[in-house]
């Protein structure tokens, strides 16, 4: 019996030890600075005060900027979902190797510098750019379209980079949906659209929710893309924070606005956290990226160490 208890203790010790470095790094590099930020937002000129919050709370501009940020993030999320769902569905029907290749292509924008990517869009979308030139050449338009320096440009730039965050959770779910379920539905007389709407779509809802949450939350903090691709009306909360830090040097108010943004993110995250934890299942993504490996690298139940 004592031996057995010892073995159990050691079994738990290893994961703890392996987790320790990241927990320390996370606390020192992330939790502490964020806590300092929140403390800073509760100060004014070095003394405790809620002045920064009353300042931004009483500013109608701030409310509008927050609403504009929320609606931009929501639009980007919806567009991403509309593009990502068919894409993830198609990839999930591919054999493993082409699927891994397609997923790699989807990730590529993530590996490009944000400035280079954004300037590339300015060149592509500008009135003299290749897209407008092609449309003019084909006679589809008579005047160049305004594609950049307005909301269209911002949506294009943001959707491109956010797409992987939507495709991966959707793919992970869709690849798990047993294809014979839809076939069974069809063999029982259901038309293909009905089979999709009643079987595949509900089964993929967890992926839809976690993909939407991820895209929405990370869109809230976008700064460079809207700043460079946006028009005269494009002004979001991240730009307001950056202005306070970089130009005005008003750190108290910047901290307060950042804390408000962070609270919004935490709030949305808490509502959907269960789904996200389920769908950000590294095991499955890893398995499909390296299809040659016979076993998943990290089994889902987390009992790998005792195997």
């Amino acid at each position: 019996m004592p031996n057995r208890r010892d073995a159990l203790g050691r079994e738990h010790l290893l994961p703890v030890l392996l987790l320790l470095p990241i927990v320390i790094l996370f606390s020192v590099g992330y939790v502490v600075p964020l806590a300092q930020l929140v403390l800073k937002s509760l100060q004014h000129d070095g003394a405790w005060s809620l002045k920064s919050y009353s300042e931004i709370g009483s500013s109608p501009a701030f409310v509008w900027i927050v609403l504009r940020t929320l609606s931009l993030a929501a639009t980007v999320t919806i567009v991403c979902l509309l593009i990502a769902y068919p894409l993830a569905y198609a990839i999930s029907k591919c054999p493993p190797r082409p699927a891994a290749f397609l997923l790699l292509i989807v990730t590529l924008p993530y590996l490009t510098s944000v400035l280079i990517r954004t300037y590339a869009w300015i060149v592509l979308l500008s009135p003299n750019g290749p897209i407008n030139q092609l449309l003019l050449y084909l006679g589809l338009i008579s005047e160049p379209l305004q594609l950049v320096f307005d909301s269209v440009g911002v949506y294009v730039g943001m959707v491109q980079v956010q797409l992987p965050l939507m495709v991966f959770p959707l793919y992970a779910v869709l690849a798990r949906v047993n294809p014979s379920l839809a076939k069974a539905a069809q063999s029982l007389g259901s038309p293909p659209t009905d089979a999709f709407l009643r079987v595949t779509l509900p089964a993929s809802m967890p992926g839809v929710i976690s993909g939407c949450t991820l895209v929405f939350l990370s869109s809230l903090g976008f700064y460079i893309t809207p700043e460079l691709l946006g028009g005269p009306d494009s002004y979001l909360i991240a730009q307001g924070i950056s202005l306070r830090v970089l130009i005005l040097g008003n750190f108290d108010e910047a901290a307060a606005q950042s804390s408000v943004l962070m609270l919004m993110v935490i709030g949305v995250f808490l509502i959907f956290r269960q789904r996200i934890a389920e769908e950000l299942d590294i095991a499955r993504i890893t398995m499909f990226l390296w299809p040659a490996s016979p076993h998943p690298v990290f089994p889902r139940n987390g009992r790998y160490w005792s195997d």
Binding site: A61, W64, I65, P232, Y235, L248
Partner: peptide
């Protein structure tokens, strides 16, 4: 300098 920025933020958000 700060007043201008605050008013600009209001104007650009359409509440000025």
């Amino acid at each position: 300098n700060e007043i201008a920025v605050a008013q600009w933020e209001r104007w650009i958000s359409g509440v000025r």
